[in-house]
Design a protein around this nucleic acid. Structure first.
Length: 306
DNA sequence: CACCAGGCAAGCC
DNA sequence: GGCTTGCATGGT
């Protein structure tokens, strides 16, 4: 599902002397939907932003790949990023925002396989601006360990405190921090990690930090594993990483689009989508390689329709 | 004040 | 192997 349409990138500098780019041809991409659907915890709506550049559109800000950016999507075909030039866009953000994947083809595929009146197509259509972000694997691993038996607002708070306490300040911006390196969290020990009020999850994050710090090939082994099952088994040798956390880490951090995280929402509603099939035995057909995208449409739709 | 939150490990049988 | 229970913390 490689994307075929060409993007057009315009770059410039704001009156505040910040780089920006305007990318056209990104259809379908919706920034608020993408950052609010529970896959990333460090981007939030910006209150102060350059109205000359962004107008009255909703703007999100945050740190990814150790860089601070402000982003908006004035329509589903346009992406504006402040804090990047064209070279950095192709080097970092093109992949981060999933622009190498043809989401129109996925949504068309859903309509063809399940029909226009199906609940799955309704969910996909409603969330058609969602994209699976390609996040840092270590950040994704820790974030989804923290997510277990937890709610999204509190997950965000915990991750924010973790970065404030153990990350590094991003040069040139106040109050923005990088995600802490494994070794820093290992050295902080369980008590230090627990100080950001993540409760029983601190010992799991410590176990992950210890593993990644001292087993240098670990993340690479997960990344390079030929089949999904091998990567999944490796991740689950970390304490606190079960099927759900592993699937989310592989989907959002390692780019394994075939991962299908089964959480409470999926378990509760799977029968409305797939005729009482077991979540682990769903027939995705040709869409199996991107089952994670379908999962995200369902998660988003069910969570918002209450 | 119970109950729940993008689950999991440990302890049972 | 499958099923039950406790878990830190904060929001409703």
């Amino acid at each position: 599902m490689e994307t075929k349409t060409k993007l057009s990138v315009t770059e410039g500098v704001t009156s505040e002397n910040r780089n920006y780019i305007i990318v056209k041809g990104v259809y379908p991409l919706d920034i608020p939907e993408t950052f609010d659907c529970g896959q990333a915890f460090r981007f939030s709506e910006a209150k102060n932003f350059d109205r000359e550049l962004f107008g009255e559109n909703t703007v999100y800000e945050g740190v990814a790949k150790d860089r601070y950016i402000m982003v908006s999507s004035p329509n589903l075909d346009t992406l504006i990023i402040e804090g990047a030039n064209e070279a950095k866009f192709y080097e970092i953000w093109y992949k981060y925002f999933g622009l190498d994947t043809d989401y129109s083809a996925i949504i068309d595929g859903i309509r063809e396989k399940w029909g226009e009146d199906s609940r799955l197509y309704t969910a996909a259509d409603a969330g058609r601006g969602i994209r699976i972000l390609s996040q840092d694997p270590w950040e994704a691993l820790v974030s989804f360990i923290v997510s277990q038996n937890n709610n999204i607002p509190r997950i965000r708070g915990i991750i924010e405190r973790l970065c404030e306490n153990f990350g590094e300040g991003v040069p040139g911006v106040r109050g923005q921090f990088t995600f802490p390196e494994p070794r820093i969290l290992y050295e902080a020990d369980v008590d230090g990690i627990a100080s950001v009020r993540m409760g029983f999850r601190a010992k799991y994050v410590f176990d992950a930090a210890e593993r990644v710090t001292f087993d240098h090939g670990f993340m690479e082994s997960v990344s390079c594993a030929l089949d999904y099952e091998t990567a999944d088994k490796l991740l689950r040798t970390i304490k606190g990483v079960g099927p759900k956390v592993s699937a989310c880490t592989l989907l959002f951090g390692f780019g394994r689009m075939e991962a299908f995280p089964v959480d409470v929402w999926i378990r509760r509603t799977v029968g409305k989508y797939f005729l009482d099939e077991e979540p682990t035995a769903i027939d995705f057909g040709e869409l199996a390689p991107v089952a994670g995208v379908l999962q995200q449409y369902i998660f988003n739709y069910e969570r918002n329709s209450n």
